[in-house]
Design a protein around this nucleic acid. Structure first.
Lengths: 252, 252
DNA sequence: GTTTTTTATTGATTTAAATCATGATTTTTT
DNA sequence: AAAAAATCATGATTTAAATCAATAAAAAAC
């Protein structure tokens, strides 16, 4: 059986598996829809042995995979946070998005069969992974699995688009930041239901990079929103004092 | 059999079917991967009757579907061009993307089962459509169909992301336009292999809207690029005189 | 073919964000 | 615990794009 399952059964906060540093609860795992149909189908179990998710961790600032790498697995973040990046002509990093706990990574490489970005851990992080070849082979035998897979892939496609949309309707720096904070809050709340207290372990530089702003500009906007009592920043924690006002701002 | 097929067989430039105004060649259709496996499988034909693609047209400035509408079909553009839009608080249109011949529309609604944007025809346009419920039911019976479907959906997800990336990585108005022209050229060349002569029936207002620029700014950039001999504009036709230089511009 | 409406260009001015510059915090290393 | 490095904040100045304004050119309507 998969490592996720093992860890869940230990009911422990730490993990005996050397490849794993965090407690993982499969019952809330994003990839459950493609793991559970297998378990209900005895004929499929042997097929599935190869693909069922394995848990592995990535050290802070290390790559889970890099751009150009051939697709072998798709991943679901089980702890921590990853940034998706590309390097431009001038060797500068451009951040294309972030992936929080419960979100998929690499699933958008199924078509060109090659990763189109680098996936870098922000802080020590971990993922569950499934081998795509085995997954596809197995899904031929288990119709329910296929439909779940399609929906799972589509869900991430939808989330990625939402993340982009917050950016391209771009108007002022202020509305960009407001939209970003709301987008992240929404995504994180799917998992931990903390709607107004955001723990955001992303550096200002990284946020500015993603939003296409200069660090100085972002810093000024953070100060402005705080002065106007819309947010309260305490280190990496951001308290959204008036989410409705932020929402108005994000739409202007 | 489906209407696409019929039209192909007529070998005519016009179509007797009242719902159809254009010649359609199924052999190059984006949705062929989900139509052809069916035809090779006799048992599946009866199942497939309901979902196999139907050809329908949309008048200029009319909606193929609107935001919030429940997902019933996914579409492949067979002629013309659609814009994907949303309406903001101030009742202003925001263009989220364009879909050219051969590209899918609505496929990203599979997860929330509800369209997240309006699809509006730019000029008289047409699509092939497949019913998703029937398609999914049928794909349970035909494993090859499912895998093709996954790949097809993922391909569009990839293309959509490329379209967005052209927007978020760039800073100056000039690099935005350069990236847009190259992105569109690339996408259109997949279909008609005209790499440097772009027929772009999108108004300046619509391009500016999509790029997040003001019409005046876009107009100035068009003039600038033309003065610098990078492009030559003749009405709706844009000749990319120096694509390499545009590419350099787009990366700055 | 002419008028009306829409769409596109170009100039002058204002403004929001970038850039330049410096110091303050925070984090990491030793 | 001190030193070094990285990150963050804020002021002064410059700049690119927005805004305001006025035509010009194309489409659409008559």
């Amino acid at each position: 059986m998969n490592n996720c399952e093992k860890q869940k059964n230990t009911e422990s906060d730490s993990c005996t598996d050397k490849t794993c540093q965090h407690f993982v609860d499969c019952s809330h795992c994003t990839m459950a829809p493609i793991c559970t149909p297998i378990k209900a189908n005895k004929n499929a179990i042997s097929l599935a042995q190869n693909y069922l998710s394995k848990h592995t961790s990535t050290n802070a600032n290390s790559a889970l995979f890099v751009k150009g790498e051939e697709l072998s697995c798709i991943y679901a973040v089980s702890s921590g946070l990853y940034k998706l990046t590309d390097i431009n002509e001038n060797n500068e990093e451009k951040i294309l998005g972030f992936r929080f706990t419960g979100e998929l990574i690499g699933e958008d490489a199924i078509y060109p069969k090659e990763h189109s970005y680098n996936a870098i851990a922000i802080g020590n992080s971990s993922v569950c992974k499934v081998k795509v070849d085995d997954l596809f082979a197995c899904s031929k035998a288990v119709p329910d699995l296929q439909l779940n897979l399609i929906e799972l892939l589509n869900r991430q496609c939808y989330l990625s688009q939402q993340e982009f949309r917050a950016l391209i309707s771009k108007k002022s720096a202020e509305s960009l930041l407001a939209a970003f904070l709301l987008n992240v809050t929404k995504r994180k709340s799917q998992h931990d239901h903390s709607t107004i207290m955001l723990n955001l372990p992303i550096s200002r530089d990284n946020i500015a990079n993603f939003l296409g702003l200069r660090r100085e500009t972002l810093s000024r906007i953070f100060s402005k929103l705080q002065k106007e009592q819309l947010i309260q920043v305490t280190g990496k924690n951001i308290l959204l004092l008036q989410p409705e006002k932020l929402s108005l701002l994000s739409n202007i």
